[in-house]
Amino acid sequence: MSTSTSAAVKREARLDTAVAEPTNVLIVGVGGQGVITVSKILAQLCLQNKLKVKQSEIHGMAKRGGAVFSHVRFGSEVYSPTIPLGQADILLALEWAEGLRWLSYLNPDSGTFISDTQMIIPPFSCRDRERGATSNYVHRTLDQVKQHVPNAFAVDATGMATELGNPRTANTVLLGMLSTALDFTVEDWQAIIAQSVPPKTLQVNQKAFVLGREWIQSDKHIAAREHVEEATPPAAPMVDNVVVDLEITEAWCKGCDICVKMCPERCLVLNSNEIVELTDPDACTGCRLCEWLCPDFAIAVHVQKIETTVAEHR
């Protein structure tokens, strides 16, 4: 055995690790929900299984109710702490609208989307509303999500946790669902949860974990499909109520980026010509922020209101 061959073996081994892509889990939610805790549990679990882990988060603007996300990457070797666009294997959303916002990060061919159907409606989507009007909250259904990704699950985890007796265990229900998509043993999961939750709530958390795991493993999510569809945020009132048409005058746009950065639904981008473009018409709620803040008057929002009574909405 010469030294050169052992070096070649070493090089090959290095190449192997370089080729092994890490598993990417993106956890998103709203400030106060426990996004960071969930990602910490997952990262600890990976560490105990002797895997390399990188976890990075943004919670600076969160307070209570702001957007929070956490990237967890693990595998035999991890280089970058953040997940590239379109490469997340699993998107775990603790809140419905946040889940939809991050859909573009999910791998379109093999990604798994797991979301709570809990709605936390931000204050700005309620502003200037008439009494009884529906909010500007996103109005896409699970079926529309399924057009983007092959595996999409929407579940009323908060409702399930409430039935167990502690609505705060909703995240553990979601962890149970997440566990079916990853290669860790149930015992490891249960042990790490036992380490991470307050002792008083251990029992209910363990029950919640099993409940979430069983929900995906059994055919419950198919049987309970109607229930899920019901739990999915209502599409009908919003769609029937308001039709939004964004008119962009390309010749007037100077690509200053104000609308792109200020859009609460992040549905605008600058295209290759540095001109604004609406990429996600479904996500646009017609809040008019882009129209108001465009210094070049390049955007006009036409909101067509279709007259329906409040009673008809309900």
Partner: peptide, 30 residues
């Protein structure tokens, strides 16, 4: 909502001079 809808900024602009000369992102337009 109705009066907001009816406001068309183009009715008040000299359209032949648009786009205006201000730099991208200048607050004067707002």
């Amino acid at each position: 909502e109705t009066s907001m809808h009816a406001f068309e900024i183009r009715d008040y602009l000299r359209k032949e001079l648009m786009p205006h000369f201000m730099c991208p992102g200048c607050g004067h337009g707002i």
